[in-house]
Write a protein that binds this DNA or RNA. Structure first.
Length: 1001
RNA sequence: GGUCGAUUAGCUCAGCGGUAGAGCACUGCAUUGACAUUGCAGGGGUCACAAGUUCGAACCUUGUAUCGACCA
């Protein structure tokens, strides 16, 4: 006999270990079977399991377990992402906290070693947590995006794309994160609305020019015209004026028409800059004149280009004001050099104020771009970076979705994908970080550069020139790129490029410069190649995940079997980051074949109020806490650490204690998984309510207890059952119902309707199996018809096993435990065949018969309750007007009806005794002889209420059927159906109304 | 500003042309033997609003309002 309760802690980890040891997670390797593969979205190595992962992984695990049971050769590929910025940040913080040298002091190699050490010690805890969830990934194949074989794939893709002309180096404004001192892609920039200011600055006109401008009085009312010798520009970033190289006004703006072509004398720096006409200037916004800083604003860059204006850089990589040559070029006074941008802002505003050039400070909301990892304000900055020609790669990826080669589920996400793909910008893939795939490019001087220097330095006997190519310095012109998988290949390319007279070698570690030299006397020329210091965007390697994990570029069996994958499961927030890029790379490198056939986009898990779960908001529900339980104090402690606003801790505590006064119980992984599946609808958000987890834990308990009941009644487990051999209607019926439910689950899962699948197994288990079948079987199991008993024991055991099988993908632990503990098992439930795979089985006659039994019992119970017959009272019931079939059914099921409806007698009769309560089931009238309990007037009232409802519905139906247009135009089956229903309702109405007549007389 | 989406029972959400559903919460009744992590019965909804299409609209179309997400 199984325990009284299922205690998840006693079984989950034990069962998981058994599965893993038995190799249950590995692909069957049966190549005759259909392959089914799912690649996990590799979580960050720094990550820990949050609710989003839990949903994501539950969905994948349900699919994988289901398809395994359907006999497919299933691979669920695990792995992790090295997560460049995130990881580097974590390790840098840790080093700082431990009082270590900074990354730059330590040097590149030493730092990377530290990161690897950290990774081995603390990275990847999410994968361990995944085991708690029951994820059936094949751990023996776990990949890490920085593994050697993965890096090989990354390098090859980079080199090939370069050779196809799809990767190029370009000098453009890039989003620069001054905190990490790296470029980031457009996608890594978030726009935040913050309180800011518009400073209205006066730029004096040069050469004594004046113009007429509408004037306003102190209330802002128009007050004629005034003569101005200055132009007002409004800016949220006054410090950038140091780099202004023109001022733009709209060509149609009457106010400034006469000023186009004139100049302003830029205060502080004393530069004379032109006033140009450009449609970018919005007459409605601010003063209508806009200062243009081409080096520090994307729009200004374009305006500057159109106007032929200079580009003056004024910021360092840390977003401080530049010094040196650049300061000189921009005319930046000494006192500003080295100031942080926000300090510089104050200083510039003060300076304008002192000069009398600060006209107004306007408070308003401004849109501020911030780095998604650092949270610091991103600066557009002019640098040389590597770009992927995304637009070219996007085209076939767009077409693949349009042609249905890859389908989005729900399908409306394809619009999001199209919008992005149609407007895709070059993808900046180089990052000025250390943790990542080193870009496989070596720099040397271009041949022309070399010769030009050589010629200009002829008189020197020897010459040694360094050209730094660090991206921080924005000049790499005159550089030749050797793009190669290995340094040997790069050297070979260089030797062939420079010719025999030049000796080529690699530069020493950490030398930040390309070096080349010649020596006339000795007749030697030499070049030292410098490998690009940068690494690739993390998403570059994730984009290759579907094939790089399977051994590409080698043509492996895995690649053949498991590419393309069946489905990619993810949330919508990484459609751009990841899905789109996998499509591009997959199609490009896998002969046009898409990386996955379906993309299932699931919702984002929020807290029960619909807020995004966030550690900094203190509203996180940790999946493992729902599995293992957590007391209120520990939960509060967890939620009040790491708050964005620590002063909110008392409020967070109050809310947490109010909502979860006892913390969370240990609901177990099954309950959590089932909840997530039940809530995985095709909507956008899931608001996770802990109550529901409790409810689905109860569901597990229900099944557990049903099994205990079966054991107590000597149900037989581990036997096969042929539905054709069944004799009893009740057994035929439950098997039919089982197959109906498993079919519904299959249909739902094939369409990714996880909520419908979960609802189907829930309803079958609880409402049909437990509430009805178990009760219906009791008279048989406790009776003395040995044949019927044996058949019912067999059916009961078998149906429970099949139920466990159908529930297994959702709730693997409790079902596997039940399987293990109800028989001598030589294998696992997770290896069993899905119920009804060879086609279901149904028995309509048995279903009709049992449905009549169910209706009859329900009807009697309902009447009893309505007229307040005490639950303990056993009442006699007779049936009037029963036809032959009903009479037979009464004979067959009298015992069970009496038991379940609490009757002391059920008999056919010709007339009703006085004071009886009547109700109708089909053609027959049920007469409850409960005169002693009822109050006639209450009963008349009850009947009247029922009759009102009936009449209303009958009215609606007959009205519809009386409508010629309906009869003529609606589908015949609908008309027929409604006619039948009308007839039924009328029959019932007539009988009940007769019953009422009788009572009232 | 553009795009996508939401508005259904007290709450969280399904349903998306043919009798308004689930879970939780609520009400009444039930307590020896599967299960109180329970059973039985029940109350509760002009499906945001307006117009249109249709024999028929929660569902399709258009508009309005409110809320949200993403992209500028």
């Amino acid at each position: 006999m199984i325990d009284q309760r299922f205690n998840p802690k006693d079984h989950e980890q034990r069962i998981y270990q058994r599965w893993e040891e038995a190799g249950c997670f590995k692909p069957s390797g049966d190549t005759s079977a259909q392959a089914y593969s799912v690649m996990i979205p590799p979580p960050n190595v720094t990550g820990s399991l949050h609710m989003g992962h839990a949903l994501n992984h539950t969905v994948q695990d349900i699919l994988c377990r289901f398809e395994r049971m359907r006999g497919k050769n299933v691979l669920w590929q695990p792995g992790m992402d090295h997560a460049g910025i995130a990881t580097q940040m974590v390790v840098e913080r840790k080093l700082a906290a431990e009082g270590n040298q900074s990354r730059r002091d330590m040097g590149r190699d030493a730092f990377i070693n530290k990161v690897w050490e950290w990774k081995e010690e603390s990275g990847g805890q999410i994968l361990e947590q995944d085991k708690r969830l029951g994820s059936s990934m094949d751990w023996s194949r776990t990949k890490f995006t920085l593994d050697d074989d993965m890096s090989e794939a990354v390098t090859k893709v980079f080199v090939d794309l370069y050779n196809y002309g799809l990767i190029y180096r370009d000098k453009r404004l890039v989003n620069w994160d001054p905190h990490f001192e790296t470029a980031i892609s457009d996608l890594e920039v978030e726009t935040k609305e913050v309180d800011g200011h518009y400073w209205h600055l006066r730029y004096p006109l040069a050469d004594g020019v004046t113009y007429e401008h509408p004037a306003f009085d102190e209330e802002g009312e128009p007050a004629g015209i005034e003569t101005r010798n200055y132009l007002v520009v409004a800016t949220s970033r006054p410090e950038t004026m140091l780099g202004d190289t023109c001022v733009a006004v709209h060509p149609d703006d009457e106010r400034y028409r006469g000023l186009v072509g004139k100049f302003v004398d830029l205060p502080i720096v004393g530069r004379r800059v032109p006033i140009v006409a450009d449609e970018y200037a919005d007459p409605e916004k601010g003063s209508g004149a806009v200062k243009i800083t081409p080096a520090h604003d994307f729009n200004d860059f374009e305006v500057g280009k159109r106007a032929g204006a200079d580009v003056l850089n004024i910021l360092t990589s840390k977003a401080a004001i530049v010094g040196g040559d650049e300061a000189e070029a921009a005319g930046i006074p000494e006192q500003y050099i080295g100031l942080d941008r926000f300090e510089a802002r104050k200083a510039i505003v003060t300076a304008f104020d002192e000069l009398g050039f600060l006209q107004e400070i306007e408070k308003l909301k401004i849109e501020q771009p911030v780095g998604d990892r650092s949270g610091s304000v991103v600066e557009p900055w002019l640098t040389d970076q590597w770009y992927v020609d995304a637009a070219t790669l996007a085209q076939p990826s767009l077409e693949a979705v349009q042609q249905g080669k890859t389908k989005f589920v729900p399908e409306n996400w394809d619009k999001t994908y199209y919008n992005w793909m149609n407007d895709i910008q070059p993808w900046c893939v180089s990052r000025q970080l250390w943790w990542g795939h080193r870009i496989p490019v070596w720099f040397g001087p271009s041949f022309e550069t070399f010769e030009a220097f050589e010629n200009s330095k002829r008189e020197d006997e020897s010459f040694d020139l360094g050209v730094t190519v660090n991206a921080n310095i924005s000049n790499t012109s005159g550089v030749k790129y050797f793009v190669a998988a290995t340094s040997e290949e790069a050297l070979a390319q260089a030797r062939s490029y420079y010719g025999d007279g030049v000796s080529v070698a690699l530069s020493e570690n950490d030398d930040p410069a390309i070096r080349f030299a010649f020596n006339l006397k000795a007749g030697t020329r030499s070049v030292k190649l410098l490998q690009d210091a940068d690494v690739l965007d993390t998403w570059f390697s994730s984009a290759l995940w579907p094939f790089s994990t399977q051994g590409w570029p080698n043509e492996t069996d895995n690649l053949k079997a498991f590419y393309p994958s069946a489905v990619l499961v993810t949330a919508f927030d990484i459609i751009f980051f990841w899905v789109a890029r996998m499509m591009m790379m997959g199609i490009k490198f896998m002969d046009g074949e898409v990386p996955f056939k379906d993309v299932y986009i699931h919702a984002i898990v929020r807290d029960e109020n619909g807020k995004k779960m966030s550690k900094s908001e203190g509203n996180v529900i940790d999946p493992v806490d729902l599995i293992d339980g957590i007391d209120a104090d520990a939960l509060v402690a967890k939620r009040t650490t790491g708050l964005r606003q620590p002063e909110k801790a008392p409020q967070v505590e109050k809310e947490t204690r109010k909502k979860y006064p006892k913390g969370f119980e240990a609901y177990g992984a099954d309950a959590l998984r089932f909840t997530l599946a039940a809530m995985a609808t095709k909507g956008r958000d899931i608001n996770l309510a802990v109550d529901r987890v409790a409810g689905y834990r109860n569901f597990g308990t229900k099944l557990w207890n049903a099994t205990r009941f079966a054991q107590m009644n000597e149900a037989t487990f581990g036997q096969s059952l042929n539905p054709q051999d069944l004799e009893l209607s009740v057994n035929k019926w439950i098997v039919s119902e089982l197959y109906k439910s498993t079919t519904a689950i299959v249909d739902a899962l094939e369409e990714y309707r996880f909520n419908d699948a979960a609802a189907a197994i829930y309803k079958f288990t609880w409402d049909i199996l437990c509430d009805w079948y178990l009760e219906l079987s009791k008279p048989v199991l406790m009776g003395d018809d040995e044949a019927a008993k044996a058949e019912t024991r067999l059916t009961l055991g078998w149906v429970l096993e099949q139920t466990c099988a159908a529930l297994h993908p959702f709730s693997p632990f409790i079902t596997e435990t039940l399987w293990e503990q109800t028989g001598e098992r030589t294998d696992f439930l997770m290896q069993q065949t899905w119920p009804g795979l060879d086609g279901g089985w149904g028995d309509e006659a048995a279903a009709d018969e049992m449905n009549w039994v169910l209706r009859t019992i329900s009807e009697i119970r309902s009447v009893r309750s309505n007229v307040n017959v005490p639950a303990s009272a056993k009442v006699p019931v007779s049936l009037l007007d029963a036809n032959d079939e009903t009479a037979k059914r009464v004979e067959a099921h009298r015992d069970v009806i009496c038991r379940m409806a609490r009757l002391d007698r059920l008999a056919l009769a010709k007339a009703a005794p006085d004071g009886a309560v009547k109700t109708v089931v089909d053609e027959a009238t049920l007469v409850l002889e409960v005169a002693e309990f009822i109050d006639t007037s209450a009963e008349v009232e009850r009947l009247s209420k029922t009759l009102d409802k009936l009449n209303k519905e009958i009215g609606g139906l007959s009205g519809r059927l009386g409508n010629e247009a309906f009869v003529a135009k609606a589908p015949p089956e609908v008309v027929a159906e409604q006619r039948i229903r009308l007839a039924e309702l009328q029959g019932t109405r007539d009988k009940l109304s007769a019953a009422r007549e009788q009572l009232s007389s």
